[in-house]
Structure formats: C-alpha cells, structure tokens
Design a protein around this nucleic acid. Structure first.
Length: 359
DNA sequence: AAGCCGGGGTC
DNA sequence: GACCCAGGCTT
C-alpha cells in the first residue's frame, strides 16, 4: 500500500497559498525590492523593517537611484536598523549591478551571490521569488522548521548541523519552478507563525503527520539552543561638545561598531577628556554637566555610556586627525547616527541646556 | 570554528 | 533577563 500523504513541498505550498502572507510590501516582481527587503530582514524582524523599507524605496525607487546616491544618504536611511555593514554592502552592490550587469539585476542565485552582502540563503530567496530557481533558503525560520520536522539534534549554527540542513532543504524542494515562490514564502511563513519558537500551533500545521518533533513531543527542545557565553561589559564617555548652538560629531571609521555613522566623540575615561580635545580637535573645553549613565546592549557586549557636556572656551584651529563636523540638533537627528546618540540628543531637548537659550 | 556586527520583539 | 530574528563576512 502506498503512502497517501502528499509530498512535503505540496503540503507546504498549498498551506502557503491558503494561509500564508500575501500582503507584505516587498511581495512584488521587482528583484531590486525583493533584494532590499531580504537585506533589511537579515537578523531583523518583519515589523521592524516595514517603516525603513517604505522610506528607503521612496527615496531610492530603483537600483540606479541607489547606486547614484551618496553613502551618507544611504546610511541616514539605515540609521537605527543596525548591522550597518548591510547598508554599505547594499550601496556597493547597487554600483556593481550598474557597472557589471548593465543596471539589470542578475537572474541566477550564483551571480547574485557574487555581490557583497548576498550569501547563499539571500541569493536563493531572491532567485526563488523572482525567477523560480529551484534552490533552497536556510534562514532562522527554515532551521526551526527542518530541525523539528526531521528531529535534528545539535545547534544549527554549528557547521556540521548546518550542512545537514542544507542537504535536507535541497531534498525537499518542489519539482516545478512555478511553485518556488509559494514554497520559499511558505517556509518563512510557517516558521514565523505556526512553527514559532515557543508554543507552536502544531494542530494547524500541514507537516504534523510526519513531523518528528511533534510525534515525539520534542518541539520544546528543538531546535537545540545556542551555547551561551558571558558577554563582556565596556564603558565609554561620550562627549557633548557645545559651541555656538551646535554640537561636534565625528565620523566613525568604515569598519567596526557603527561603521561610517556620525557619532559623539568618545573618551576612555573622564580624566582623558581635556587632553583628547586638545590633541584631536584643537579645542580647549570647560566641563559642564555629567548626565546619567546609560546602558546600551549589543549582541556581543554591553556598553556603559557616561555623557559629559563640554563647552568650547578656545579653538586652537589645529588640523583635525579625524573627520568632524558641527551639527545643529535638527541636522544631527537627520544624519546617520547610532541609536544611543539619538537618545542622548533627544534627551537634551528637554533639558534645554545644550541647544537652548545659550546658543 | 569562532568572532564581529545593532536594535528590538517576545516571553 | 534570556533568547532570537528573511545572515554574511572576517579571521
């Protein structure tokens, strides 16, 4: 007797067409928009991305517009979204599309994966959605669905486990390229809705009949958790240097934390401030308020920020080692600045000290 | 293989 | 607070 259960891909695509998401703003046939959404969605949830996506496509409607824009404008649109290398790579890749592909977005996953910021999974998503290429994605959603469905033990970030999952994902693809958009979207939708990390809704799942985790009552333990490590704590002093109603911002180096963004100058400790301002900015400063410490949490460390207000008492008109610029508050808030700096500048509005009557 | 790179949603 | 999110790149 043959197994009456339809193939994995058939159950998933049918479920996606009936119950999946169909109204996301990037569900178009424009590979530029699909690409942009995939980059924004890397390690970032859908609800967070939507307003950024809307602003970005309004300002940069085509890949040519993006390629022609200054990097600073791109970073300003990305500010607050995090992982700023994504924005720099997006800009670089747009220029590569114009230069190397005549402005037409490449049509195969292999070609897409040569562009900066597009890895195997992102390339597969774009190629599957836009061109029906029969190649699988493997993102956080898919890892959760597959480890549960096949009962795969081990942390999915580990290379050996990840390779197993790629092989499995290949084997489960549909036969027809016309099913690829619904299949790819279905893997994402299932992982984002029914097959959630906690309390999955197995009763409504199209895969429950042969899902190992469901059958064996192991949905709570799969996927295997990431092994946890202690995160270090660092501290810094952020300098709010005030002069004639403006504040001094410094452009951060292109690589490293907040790469390419405009940020407040930093000192390792309060005692290092005067020397630093003289040597780096050619400024004599007087101390103002020390504002309450603010804790900013990153994935791999915690940063304790002590904001120190300073007033310029004399300018030595010395050559600057770094790129700096005096900003009006309103202009600073429009630039590409890190989230804690934004919070500090907005906080100062209420205190009416830094940008107030004295300016 | 492990580290680096943000910010926020969710429980 | 812990954990994770439509990951990719560097070392």
């Amino acid at each position: 007797m043959t197994n009456p259960l339809p193939a994995f891909a058939d159950r998933l695509t049918r479920w996606q067409r009936a119950h999946g998401r169909h109204d996301l703003p990037w569900q178009t046939d424009d590979p530029y928009r699909v690409w942009l959404s995939e980059i924004m969605l890397q390690q970032t949830q859908v609800a967070t991305v939507i307003p950024y996506y809307q602003r970005f496509t309004t300002s940069f409607p085509t890949v040519a517009d993006l390629a022609a824009a200054p990097l600073d404008a791109v970073l300003a649109h990305w500010a607050g979204l995090g992982y700023y290398t994504r924005a720099r790579n997006l800009h670089k890749a747009a220029q590569a599309v114009v230069r190397d592909f005549g402005g037409a977005f490449p049509r195969t996953a292999a070609q897409m994966a040569t562009l900066p910021g597009i890895g195997r999974s992102t390339a597969a998503a774009i190629a599957g959605f836009c061109f029906g290429e029969l190649t699988p994605i493997l993102d956080g959603n898919v890892k959760r669905v597959l480890t549960r469905w096949a009962g795969v033990d081990g942390f999915p970030g580990e290379k050996k486990i990840e390779n197993q999952l790629w092989t499995l994902a290949e084997a489960l693809l549909p036969r027809s390229s016309s099913d690829m958009p619904a299949f790819t979207q279905g893997m994402m939708d299932l992982g984002a809705s029914l097959c959630s990390r906690s309390k999955p809704q197995c009763a409504a799942c199209p895969l429950r009949a042969d899902c190992r985790a469901h059958i064996e009552g192991r949905t709570a333990e799969l996927p295997t958790r990431k092994p946890k490590k202690a995160v270090p704590e660092r501290s810094t002093v952020m300098l709010l240097i005030k002069h004639e109603g403006r504040i001094l911002l410094e452009k951060r180096p292109p690589s490293g934390i907040w790469g390419g963004l405009w940020s407040l100058p930093e000192a390792d400790s309060p005692t290092a401030i005067a020397t630093l301002c003289r040597a780096r900015f050619g400024l004599e400063v007087e101390s103002g308020d020390t504002l309450p410490t603010l804790l900013h949490v990153f994935t791999h460390f915690r940063l304790s920020i002590t904001p120190q207000v300073l007033r310029v008492s004399a300018s030595l008109n010395q050559v600057h080692e770094t790129e700096t610029q005096w900003f009006q508050r309103s202009e600073a808030l429009k630039a590409g600045i890190p989230t804690p700096v934004r919070k500090l500048l907005q906080m100062k509005v209420k205190q009416a000290d830094l940008f107030g009557a004295a300016s």
